[in-house]
């Protein structure tokens, strides 16, 4: 009898403890500048894969990187998956359709504001307060800001995983690979200094490590 009481008490205590967030939040930035727009078919694959890995209570948003990316308007599709499995499947299908429509009709942007997109991602995921926060950057990481835009801002990426995907080499990178390596190093430093972790995945066949 005593054991039962102790067990019940333990159960009550553990059930009354503040719930620990175990859900996942993913924010994906799609570079639509210049020739990189042609790579978006690959991004669609990644989005579909990510959708298949997410479950109830997870959050997923996809936003484009354009001239001024620090804006909710750039969010192409977003979903916070509900509790019911049947509704989750419906949400995923709608999400995939929205992305498909976006990829088919996307216009190329003249500038590339990656930092603004990153700030928007941080803000969005902090607002959703998910357990794990992952930002996927599908870009060549070549930032090209319009004149007058200030992006020299400190981030707070504590608890964020930032993953750069499909970082393609530019023509100039082939001439001087130090440019490519310097670009990667610069972003890594920026993210890690802000308290986040940094990874680069260029081989899209190894997406199992993504989430």
């Amino acid at each position: 009898m005593k054991i039962l009481i102790v067990f019940a008490a333990c159960l009550a205590i553990t059930s009354c403890a503040p719930p620990q967030q175990t859900n996942t939040g993913v924010y994906m930035l799609l570079d639509t500048s210049g020739t990189y727009r042609e790579e978006l078919q690959k991004a669609e694959q990644i989005i579909r894969y990510t959708l298949s890995r997410l479950d109830a209570a997870d959050t997923f948003a996809v936003a484009r990187i354009d001239t001024a990316s620090f804006s909710e308007k750039d969010i192409v599709a977003k979903a916070s998956f509900v509790d019911r499995p049947s509704a989750i499947n419906r949400q995923k299908r709608i999400f995939a359709e929205e992305i498909s429509a976006f990829v088919d009709g996307v216009q190329s942007s003249p500038y590339t504001d990656i930092t603004g997109g990153l700030l928007q991602a941080v803000e969005y995921l902090n607002e959703k307060n998910t357990g794990t926060k992952t930002i996927l950057i599908f870009s060549d990481l070549q930032e090209d800001l319009k004149e007058g835009y200030v992006r020299d801002i400190r981030f707070d990426l504590d608890g964020f995983d930032v993953i750069a995907l499909n970082v393609t080499k530019l023509r100039t990178d082939n001439i001087d690979p130090r440019e490519y390596l310097g670009r990667l190093g610069e972003w890594q430093t920026k993210v890690e200094k802000s308290g986040g972790s940094w990874r680069v995945i260029n081989d899209l066949d190894g997406l199992e490590k993504l989430l």
Partner: peptide, 16 residues
């Protein structure tokens, strides 16, 4: 167990 998630939700936890 799987369809029960439709009734009581798939993410809520009791005692872990």
């Amino acid at each position: 167990a799987r369809p029960m998630a439709e009734m009581v939700g798939g993410t809520s936890l009791i005692g872990g």
